[in-house]
């Protein structure tokens, strides 16, 4: 009996034990200041904060039914993964709280896990969720964030940002001077670069509404398309771009443009140059409305 108790106590001190109830997690690993951390948790919560230490601290609790917490890798690339028994559907949520070096790159994967990241300023921030919401605040050089039904609330000062969802809404704010790409199926897209001029912006949605507020850099390109969702671009008054817009049955509007409609059949379109026309903007919808505003 004593041996059994002793063995149980010893096992409880290691990371790779079967969890009989919510099991506290407390692990620390060294990581280079610009190292990479891959984090995976199917259900529960993933919270990442940053510090100036060259190490990763992992706390939280392993949900009942989860098999173990797997922590593998080296100082350059660390993997933190919650392992589940095969075909296990009745596991309790696991909470992972990580402290990572401020300039570490992150690759986070969740299914029904809420993901909350703050303070990161590494080269890459990749987040992939299914139904869990994603909140991210930071200044990674590039960010690639996707979900299926979870909402994305992002405040990023980055060079390039790619965001994608099926039905989740996308709200992105931040100084983004390079490229922004946003795709949804039914989720709404709201992007505000806080006056920063992007080199390239593309948005695609089926039935969601897409709005972009910001500026277009000299020679930059914007393309936005939807099936039934409405498109709205709010750009700088001193816009310099050729704009082409067309719709099958939606309405088109922009300051000072003349929308042409065929005498017979559906469809409307316009072509117009603003300023010296150095950039290019293309708007296409099937039944959604498209609007360009200059402020």
């Amino acid at each position: 009996m004593k041996t059994t108790l002793l063995l149980t106590a010893l096992l409880a001190c290691t990371a790779g034990i079967p969890a009989f109830a919510a099991t506290p997690i407390n692990e620390t690993r060294p990581l280079d200041a610009r190292g990479r951390v891959d984090i995976s948790n199917v259900k529960g919560r993933i919270e990442v904060r940053t510090w100036d230490k060259a190490e990763v601290a992992i706390t939280g609790s392993l949900g009942e039914g989860a098999e173990r917490l797997q922590v593998e890798g080296d100082q350059r690339n660390l993997e933190v993964k919650v392992r589940y028994p095969r075909n296990s559907r009745n596991t309790e949520p696991t909470t992972l709280v990580l402290q990572v070096p401020r300039h570490a790159s992150l690759d986070i994967e969740g299914v029904a896990a809420t993901i909350d990241v703050a303070g990161v300023a590494g080269d890459e921030l990749d987040i992939d969720s299914v139904s869990g919401s994603v909140t991210a605040v930071g200044a990674p050089r590039s960010a690639d964030i996707s979900s299926v039904s979870g909402d994305l609330r992002l405040n990023l000062n980055s060079e390039t940002v790619e965001v994608e969802s099926v039905s989740g809404t996308i709200a992105l704010r931040g100084r983004i001077g390079g490229e922004v790409s946003a795709e949804t199926v039914s989720g709404d897209i709201t992007i505000d670069t806080r006056g920063e001029a992007v080199r390239r912006f593309s948005a695609s949605t089926v039935s969601g509404n897409a709005g972009f507020t910001g500026a277009l850099a000299d020679g930059g390109r914007i393309s936005a398309e939807s099936v039934s969702g409405n498109l709205r671009l709010t750009l700088q008054k001193a816009l310099s771009a050729r704009v082409h817009a067309e719709s099958f049955s939606g309405s088109l509007s922009a300051p000072g443009v003349s929308v042409s409609r065929p005498k017979y059949g559906p469809g409307s379109s316009f072509e117009h140059s603003f300023g010296s026309g150095s950039g290019e903007i293309r708007l296409e919808t099937f039944s959604g409305n498209a609007e360009l505003r200059l402020e």
């Binding site: 029904a112 039905s167 099936v227 559906p266 099937f286």
Partner: peptide, 29 residues
């Protein structure tokens, strides 16, 4: 929740194909 998303994708595919049937030159569709 995942099933709802799959349904959403299927419904959207139908919507896009219906739109394409009406506007058969629309490459973006």
């Amino acid at each position: 929740p995942a099933h709802a998303s799959l349904d959403q994708l299927d419904a959207s595919a139908v919507a896009v194909r219906e739109a394409l049937a009406q506007d058969p030159d629309a490459q973006y569709l």
